[in-house]
Design a protein around this nucleic acid. Structure first.
Length: 272
DNA sequence: GAAGGCCTGGAA
DNA sequence: TTCCAGGCCTTC
């Protein structure tokens, strides 16, 4: 559920809140969520300042003095929260870092456990699951974006979800960008003209920027670093709106399943 | 390229 | 009680 705008929002808040600070304690509460197992978190992280925060696709990383890095992926229900005191309960909290300024803790929580935390030692190789993550739409031209999809036989919707082609989009923003581009999610990419794919790049970038200015979308568990909600869910035009009126033409929004994922679209406005 | 599995909470 | 949500990996 957290997609590019949500992760980027978090990364920015991390920068404001955490850059230059350090942690004094590490508690791994569920070992299976932190990899590799037995990673030397305590000695690698404690007492070292957070130097840099970066986002790659839907992952983001804290880099510590000395070069050790901690990558987070939020799956669909993950949260990273900085709270002033200890969290009230520890249900579903898998990792807890104590801030050395004595002003609380950072915790990683993920009820559905689709996410993960990855430790990358200084000078070590990128974790495997990050190696094939493609650049995001902001990092490429419309022409490159079109090239990555052009000629593929799969339905455009499932290709948009493929993080190895272009990263950052999940189910929500894929549906919303196809709506804005007027493209039927069931359309096979090789049946789309190049201009249509280039146009789609424009719509994707616009959409992601708008979502970013509103702090992303909160559906379910996503929260900002301080626990607040994003605001972009109010702006969704088709996602999750089956049988409701299309904001463009009033026709009822349809839901179909494409490669196992719900896809919402307007059968009138998305003819191409 | 499609489908199943992981996992839990909430809705039907 | 069953089903569904979905990012990502594995298997077919």
């Amino acid at each position: 559920m957290p997609e590019l705008p949500e992760i980027e929002t978090l990364a920015r808040q991390f920068r404001d809140r955490l850059q230059g600070t350090s942690f004094s304690g590490v508690q791994v509460l569920r070992a299976s969520m932190v990899r590799p197992s037995g990673a030397p978190l305590q000695e690698s992280i404690c007492g070292r300042r957070v130097q840099d925060i970066a986002r790659t696709g839907k992952f983001f990383a804290m880099t510590f003095e000395g070069g050790h890095r901690l990558w987070f992926h939020l799956g669909m229900s993950g949260q990273v929260v900085v709270s002033a005191g200890r969290p009230r309960g520890i249900s579903h909290i898998h990792l807890l870092l104590e801030l050395s300024d004595g002003k609380g803790v950072l915790y990683y929580r993920d009820p559905r456990r689709f996410g993960k935390v990855l430790f990358q030692p200084a000078g070590g190789p990128l974790p495997v699951s990050l190696r094939r993550v493609a650049p995001d739409p902001f990092q490429m031209s419309a022409a490159e974006f079109a090239d990555r999809y052009r000629g593929r036989k799969a339905r455009i919707k499932s290709l948009l979800l493929d993080q190895h082609l272009v990263s950052g989009l999940g189910n929500i923003y894929a549906d919303e960008s196809l709506f804005r581009a007027g493209i039927d999610p069931r359309k096979r990419a090789n049946r789309l003209k190049r201009e249509r794919l280039e146009g789609l790049h424009g719509r994707v970038c616009e959409l992601l920027k708008e979502a970013l200015t509103l702090g992303g979308s909160t559906i379910g568990d996503y929260r900002h670093l301080d626990g607040k909600h994003g605001g972009f869910q109010e702006m969704h035009r088709v996602y999750g709106r089956e049988r409701q009126a299309c904001p463009g033409c009033g026709a009822p929004v349809r839901r179909v399943v494409i490669s196992g994922r719900s896809s919402y679209f307007c059968p009138v406005c998305q003819k191409d």
